[in-house]
Each structure stands twice: as C-alpha cells, then as structure tokens.
Computed example of a mutant assay.
Amino acid sequence: MTLKLTLLATASGVLIASNVGATELKMQTFLGANASTTKAFEAMAARLKDETSGEVAITVLPGGAVVGAGETIDAIQNGLLDGQYTAPSYFAGKDAALGVLGDTLAAYPDSATRDRWFTEGGGLELARALYAKYDMHLVCPVYWPPEQIPSKVEIGSVADLDGIKMRAPGGLASDLLSRAGAALVTMGVGESVTAMETGVLDATDLANVALNVALGMHNQAKYSVLARHSMAVTEMSVSMDKWTALSSENQQKFEAACNAMSAELQTTLSDEDAAAEATATDDLGVTFVAFGDEDASKFRAMTNEVWADWGGKSADAQAVVDSHKAFMATIGLD
C-alpha cells in the first residue's frame, strides 16, 4: 500500500510539473464551427500542443462564441479572450490604420502577390508595430482567397456598377464601390439572401465563391463577378502578455504553425472555390465574369483615391498606405 501511494504521488507530481509552464489561450475565430478556416485552426492548435509538449494550449472558439467579430480586440484587452483569428477590416471604425491594413482593394492582382508585401515589403513589421499599440502581437497573416460579387444582373466593368443596388459591410470596400456609383445598403448576411429574392438588392459584397454558394447567394444571383474590389487580409494575433509568457522556442513554433496553416488554407480554400464554381456553373446556371485589365487599372486608380482619404485619417493609416505604394513600385504596379 505504501509503495502504491508513493507511485501515485510521484505520478501526480510529474503531471503537475508538466503543466507548470503551460500557456493556455482562448482564441476566437471569425467564422462558424463548420467553416474550413475554423477546422484548420483547430488542427493547427492540436499540432502546436503536441509540438510544444502541451506548453501552448489553444482553445479555438467559433465566431460569435464570446463576442461579435468587431469586438474581439476589446475582449482581448479586457481578458475575455487571449487572441483572435480574424480580419483587421472588422476594426476599420475603431482604427483607420486597421481598416487600411485589412483590405487592399484592387491594389494587387491577387492575394498571393499582395501577401509578398508582408514578407518582402516590410508589411509584417509594420503590422506588428500597429498591433503592439493594442498590447497585442500579430503572429502571422493568414491566406484568404479572392472575393466575388454574387449578382442578379451582369456586371462586366466598373461602369456597370453605376446604380447597382448592393449590400456592403462598410469600410474601404464600401468606399470603393460607392465611388464606382453603386447604391449601397447596409444589412446582415442573412438579410441579404432574402433581399436578393425580393428584389431589394441586385448584388451583394460578401465573400469567396465557396461561401457564397454555401450561403445560398446563387439561388437568385446568376452571375459571380471577380471585380477585385476587395482583397481582405486575415490574421492570427494574441495578447502581448500571453506572447511574452511563451519561451522563444515556443514563439517560433507558434509562428511556424501559423504560417503552415496559411499555406494549407491556400490549397484548401482554392480547391473549395474551384469545386463550388463547378457546382454553381453546372447545377445553378451561374455565369462567372472577371474584370479585364482596363477595368482593373480603373479600380486601382480608385483604390489610390480611397487610400488618400483613409491615409489622411491618421499617421498610422498613412504609413500603411505609403508602405504598400513603395512595395508596389518595386514590383511594377505603380
């Protein structure tokens, strides 16, 4: 009996000791529990826990589990959350610089080119300095696919947007679309599906093809328009206290896991969009339209107008604008 008690006490001591250095993080994502992004985050969290022998333990919470998408920074500062996987554009009303960081509109031809700004153009360092002002650390940007506009009417050019009744969520993308003449309406995602059915809306600015199809947008909208009007950034970030509590080795493992998840999502989300496009074309009769080079140039010029206005809102916002423009010049997009 004495030996058994001794062994139990020893085993308990080992378990307690193994958890002493553990850092637990409650992190909320921006989409629901069944979204591919949420599932990828859960898989990343499990791998990271294994790779750090339990020292980094992330609890992944789906969008809205604790607070709304636009409230997660406040929740992190108040201790309700420890981190987030989200889009900076949700905080455009809080900080113009986060709005500019969160959506590069038509500045770049695709997300992969834009994401080079983070790795080659000093964007990651600039973004981390901005997040540090909120006592947060940006771990890494995460791939998000090109967004498309489900529409009941054909939109083949910037000029075709004039007078189109469109749902838009606010921020820089809404600013760009309004400059093109679209008649914007602010409403929730669920409401916009009904509004498309009743004729209140002609089109909606929402998400990528797979999400648009899954949400039923193309039950009424027989066009999907790649206007490159919005090129959202998503990211993973944590409170600075939690980040500094990690060892240097675990910080490196966290960042590596985040970047690996981003690379995996580029494949997963691209495959899902391709499959959704095939389904929409074959089963729903949807026609896919992409703006040509001339209209891409027009939208890029309008993006510069939007940047001029938003950059004027704060020094931080202007710094993000200037950094993008400098990088674009080096790759021939000026």
Rank of each mutant, 00 (worst) to 15 (best):
M196D: 00
L284E: 04
A274E: 14
N219P: 07
M236H: 10
F288V: 01
D334Q: 14
V238Y: 06
S53C: 06
N259G: 15
T281H: 00
G13I: 06
I155P: 01
N19Y: 08
Y223P: 01
E249I: 13
L61Q: 02
A180S: 04
S157E: 00
V56S: 01
Q77D: 09
F41C: 08
A132Q: 10
L265Y: 07
T204D: 13
Y223C: 05
V189T: 13
D50N: 15
S36L: 15
K222N: 07
F118S: 12
G93C: 04
G79R: 02
R116L: 15
G99S: 02
Q77M: 10
R300T: 11
A210G: 05
D316R: 04
L25Q: 04
M261L: 03
K222Y: 04
D95T: 05
D283L: 11
T119V: 15
E272V: 03
G312Q: 12
T6N: 12
A183D: 15
A263H: 07
I149M: 06
S18P: 08
T10R: 13
H229K: 01
A87E: 13
T10I: 14
V238M: 08
E305W: 02
Y108G: 07
K325I: 09
A308L: 12
V289D: 00
E154C: 07
V209G: 00
G83N: 05
L284F: 08
V320M: 05
Y131L: 11
N219D: 14
D135H: 09
L7M: 15
Q318Y: 12
